[in-house]
Nucleic acid binder design. Structure first.
Lengths: 184, 184
DNA sequence: CTTGCGCGAGAACCATCGTTCTCCTACGCT
DNA sequence: AGCGTAGGAGAACGATGGTTCTCGCGCAAG
């Protein structure tokens, strides 16, 4: 028998791939069982309902996504470089073969109206992202409004890249961000 | 008996309210029948499947949304004013009590991976919106890249307003747009 | 008048899905 | 060895949803 921790990881990995790739409602618990190789009984022991699995999926993705972004941006030499690097990171993300937009925007559009837990998780994710950009602009000695503006550009780039299937919006957003950064 | 045209309108109105307000998969055909007052038999005569009703809903919303935007923006005195008016119009839209983000982004996130028809409709809607903004920037004697940048701001404002539940992103996007407009 | 067609109301049908249950196997403890 | 418990595989259950069918009625043509 596999350990509970391993089982939990396998379930979360399968759930993330399936939920993100095909939409939450389009994926049944049976499919998560097949993909993870964990029995239904075990699955329900670890996550007592699909709703709790959805929350666990979103929470883990939130943390990992923001960690990866921060690791990339914080490695830059100056705050200005960090700000622009955000858009480079987005470009790399958009180019991944399974990129399908923002998991939080997607789940909000799908379930936000019927699940306040999903709506709240999406809101918290976006707020944390906004806060991070505002920290970067503060470190560069720029006003908080620049953080808001950059966040809108990034947000727009994500949905546009998802729907158009192109990574180009990241470069466009970066060009706009450079203008805003120099003007601020 | 009501005329087929009237029945079709009542169905589309009910479908739009329900699909947009609660998500497409969360709404059953029975609920559309109750809300529209049109019998299931008639409903299936006019729209042979839920998929075709979804497409009709999205097509009509695309046309109306872009018409309303263009009517508002084109009424301005100068191309520059038209560009900035786009964000005023967004602000009004965000303030509507049933605002829940972009119907196309939402349906793309929900069904884009499983329905190529939905994905394509969303793509066409965004492309038309982008094209419209590029026309405005061209009329103002600005480069096409400005149109792309404004589109990203608008797009970001829409999803941010939806998830945060605030109309403020429209004002923030307008401020950023003004900077980009003057710098271009 | 009567015959038949179109319609509305809603039951019926079939698939799917979230969740639970059954049955059987394997292993740990005494 | 024998017993009890946990776990896996998958059937079962109840609800829901998309789609179709049945039934009964009203109206229009002959």
């Amino acid at each position: 028998m596999i350990s509970p921790e391993t089982a939990e990881l396998k379930i979360l990995d399968a759930a993330e791939t399936l939920f993100y790739g095909r939409g939450i409602q389009a994926v049944g618990m049976d499919e998560i069982r097949s993909a993870s190789g964990v029995s239904l009984k075990r699955l329900y022991q670890l996550f007592p309902s699909k709703g709790e699995l959805i929350q666990a999926y979103l929470r883990r993705r939130d943390v990992r996504w923001r960690q990866k972004l921060a690791a990339y941006a914080d490695a830059q030499a100056t705050p200005e470089d960090s700000i622009l690097a955000v858009f480079d990171w987005l470009h790399e993300w958009f180019g991944e073969p399974d990129f399908r937009g923002c998991a939080f925007s997607n789940s909000f559009g799908e379930l936000g109206a019927t699940s306040s837990a999903v709506a709240e998780t999406a809101r918290a994710h976006k707020e944390a992202f906004f806060r991070y950009l505002t920290e970067l602009t503060a470190a560069a000695g720029k006003p908080a409004s620049l953080g808001d503006h950059l966040a809108l550009l990034a947000e727009g780039a994500i949905t546009t890249a998802a729907i158009s299937g192109s990574a180009e919006p990241a470069h466009q957003a970066k060009a706009a961000a450079r203008v805003l950064l120099e003007a601020a």
